[in-house]
């Protein structure tokens, strides 16, 4: 059992994974950084040359980049609501219920099927003319006696609830309404609420000692007070984890929705940074520029994670 024999064995056990990891993860990370400093274009319009930080500078100086970052952040506006709803349903499911496994499976259904099939489905649901969502909205409006009801154009509309203007960051009251970005948020909520976050909360709730909640109830605490003072502190680390992971996922997100449902439109309003990188790399073949933007995206993700850590971890320490 000498240290040396362990090292030899460790190399053997690690070899397959380490080889793949080096070849397809670690190596590409270094390679990507090197590429971001060049004008590399797969269509070879000009000779390959080192351009320093030009790609980074060009990206940060362009209006589209900030507009796409704005779109990315807009699509994350549903996250707090999704997380709160996940928590609420986890608390409901944590009680002794009939068919608790069945409920859990039903609510979990959208999230493990999410992907292209679900996006294709939602594209049809959101069709302004015959999609189920507008059909339902119109019948509700008719039922309420609203005659002048104009149903949202969803994926075909640049409108949005924050009245953001087109093409660059700014405000334009004419853009107020429900449009493509809101439609994607709606779909995201549908897919996310019963998903992994709810299961994480359910797992965390099993760690709350029932003696504590029972004692609080005997003392006459209301269920809200009991949740706030007894249960919540046990959930803080999980919440922190979920927030960090959701922000990371949100900043990197939007590619599939844009590629499958909107091709980034209308008027680029659903183009997120990840979709922008895709079109630059795989449609315009500007590998150097796309690599630079993906490193900027990494910096944004990293910065957001640090901020979360700095301000969010305090709540965790209390627990």
């Amino acid at each position: 059992m000498s240290k040396r024999s362990d090292l030899v064995a460790a190399i053997g056990f690690l070899a397959p994974n380490l080889l793949g990891f080096g070849l397809f993860t670690a190596g590409p990370v270094l390679f990507s950084f090197a590429a971001s400093l060049t004008n590399w274009n797969l269509q070879r319009t000009s000779p390959l040359r080192f351009v320093g930080l030009d790609n980074y500078r060009n990206a940060l100086a362009s209006d589209p980049f900030w507009f796409y970052l704005g779109n990315t952040v807009y699509l994350m506006l549903g996250l707090p609501l999704a997380i709160a709803a996940s928590l609420w349903f986890a608390v409901l499911l944590n009680r002794p219920l009939r068919f608790s496994g069945g409920w859990r499976a039903l609510l979990y259904l959208p999230s493990f099927t999410s992907g292209v099939a679900v996006m294709v489905l939602w594209k049809a649901l959101l069709n302004p003319d015959f999609g189920a969502i507008n059909v339902a909205l119109r019948s509700v409006a008719a039922g309420l006696g609203v005659t002048q009801f104009e149903s949202p154009r969803w994926l075909l509309s640049t409108k949005n609830l924050l009245a953001l203007s087109l093409e660059r960051l700014g405000h334009d009251p004419g853009q107020w309404g429900l449009g493509a970005r809101d439609a994607l948020i709606l779909m995201g909520l549908w897919a996310a609420i019963g998903g992994g976050n709810m299961l994480l909360y359910l797992a965390a709730l099993t760690n709350v000692p029932t003696e504590l909640t029972e004692a609080a109830q005997l003392d006459g605490a209301s269920s809200w007070r009991c949740f706030r003072s007894v249960t919540w502190p046990f959930l803080a680390p999980t919440t922190f984890f979920i927030v960090v992971m959701s922000v990371i996922g949100g900043l990197q997100g939007g590619f599939e929705q844009a590629r499958v449902m909107t091709t980034g439109g209308p008027a680029s309003t659903t183009t997120t940074l990840s979709y922008h990188i895709y079109t630059e790399a795989f449609e315009r073949f500007r590998i150097g520029y796309a690599s630079a933007v993906s490193w900027i995206l990494f910096a944004v993700v990293f910065g957001a994670t640090l901020l979360n850590w700095k301000f969010g971890d305090r709540g965790t320490d209390d627990a």
Binding site: P28, V29, I287, L297
Partner: peptide
């Protein structure tokens, strides 16, 4: 690290 970083290489 975002998936797109390693995707291109």
């Amino acid at each position: 690290i975002p998936g797109v970083v390693t995707m291109i290489p």
